[in-house]
């Protein structure tokens, strides 16, 4: 089964990479954003498997984005590889620090403290006039190890670059899920006392998960900053976090792939819904979220699992 999943993932990745030059420019740019955001969702999936929800994941997204934007602005350095790596590292450091506080909490406190932390950053950025306050500021175009594409080539380069980072992240997170620490997600949700008496520090495992989710959030934000070419405080606002949580719940914690598919579907639906029913986007989000929680608590990913089970049951 695992090999079949990996094969399917690899094929999907190759297809996504090969199809891009044939797609219209706006689709490529939408998919780039979707796949950048999918990294944040992947981080939330890591937490959600342990029963933790962060209502403030935009904190790391925003830090990743601003790290990239500020480096470009102050030093003129534009290499995408280094920039995105630094975005991930910056967010990871912040996650490691706030992790000392967050790892002590579960459930509601974890969710709301994350939210409060992201709103602190929002408040600070809005008040910082040198960084453009609510307007933010723009990020100049990146280069790729000396290669400086423009126009359509730039869009495609960013898309492939994002896709490549996604693939690496997916493989690593998949390996993490199969490791001892990763497999302790359900046990920690079920019974922390037993986990402690097996000889494992639950706090440290959760701290690790916060850092993993933070790094992924930072990478996503860094890629988004380069793709959009602009950063602003709204990247740290609660609605941004809310969108990520939404995709996570919708996709479910079952698989790595769900984060990518979910994120892509979300961006597509959003771009249409905003056209068709402007002003009702949050209502659509809320309703779908409610229906998912009530009728499909394990997310859309569980539908695939259910179908497969039925298939296996057949002689």
């Amino acid at each position: 089964m695992i090999t079949r999943e990996k094969l399917a993932g690899g094929l999907a990745f190759l297809f996504a990479a090969a199809a891009a030059p044939l797609a219209p420019e706006w689709v490529v740019s939408l998919a780039t954003i979707a796949f950048a955001n999918a990294l944040v969702v992947l981080g939330l999936v890591v937490l959600w498997r342990t029963g933790l929800v962060s209502f403030g994941q935009a904190l790391y997204y925003c830090i990743g984005a601003y790290t990239v934007a500020l480096i470009v602005r102050w030093s003129g350095f534009t290499d995408a590889f280094a920039l995105v790596a630094l975005g991930g590292v910056g967010a990871g450091i912040v996650a490691a620090l706030v992790g000392f506080l967050l790892a002590r909490y579960r459930e509601i406190f974890f969710a709301m403290l994350s939210l409060a932390l992201s709103m602190i950053l929002y408040g600070v950025l809005v008040k910082t006039e040198t960084l453009g306050s609510t307007d933010g500021f723009s990020v100049s175009t990146p280069s790729f190890l000396g290669y400086r594409p423009h126009g359509e080539a730039l869009g495609l380069s960013l898309y492939w670059f994002t896709l490549a980072i996604d693939a690496v992240a997916a493989v690593l997170v998949g390996a993490y899920f199969r490791s001892v620490a990763g497999s302790l997600a359900t046990p920690i949700r079920d019974n922390e006392i037993r986990v402690e008496f097996l000889g494992v520090s639950v706090t440290r495992i959760i701290h690790t998960k916060v850092v993993i989710a933070g790094v992924l959030g930072g990478l996503g934000g860094a890629l988004a900053a380069l793709t959009i070419g602009h950063v602003d405080p709204a990247m740290s606002y609660w609605t941004t976090s809310g969108g990520f949580v939404f995709v996570t719940i919708l996709a479910g914690a079952g698989s790595v792939a769900a984060a990518f598919v979910g994120s892509l579907v979300f961006e597509m639906v959003r771009s249409f819904a905003v056209d068709i029913m402007p002003g009702l986007w949050q209502m659509v989000l809320g309703s779908v979220l409610l229906l998912t929680i009530l009728f499909l608590p394990d997310g859309l990913g569980s539908l695939v699992a259910r179908l497969r089970k039925r298939e296996e049951a057949k002689p």
């Binding site: 993490y176 001892v180 497999s183 495992i205 690790t208």
Partner: peptide
């Protein structure tokens, strides 16, 4: 198997992450 894997995991800072559960 989780209890077994935890008990037999590699030591060090990354022992939890680098030891597969199965």
């Amino acid at each position: 198997v989780i209890a077994a894997a935890v008990a037999r995991r590699a030591g060090g800072l990354l022992g939890n992450v680098t030891t597969p559960v199965h």
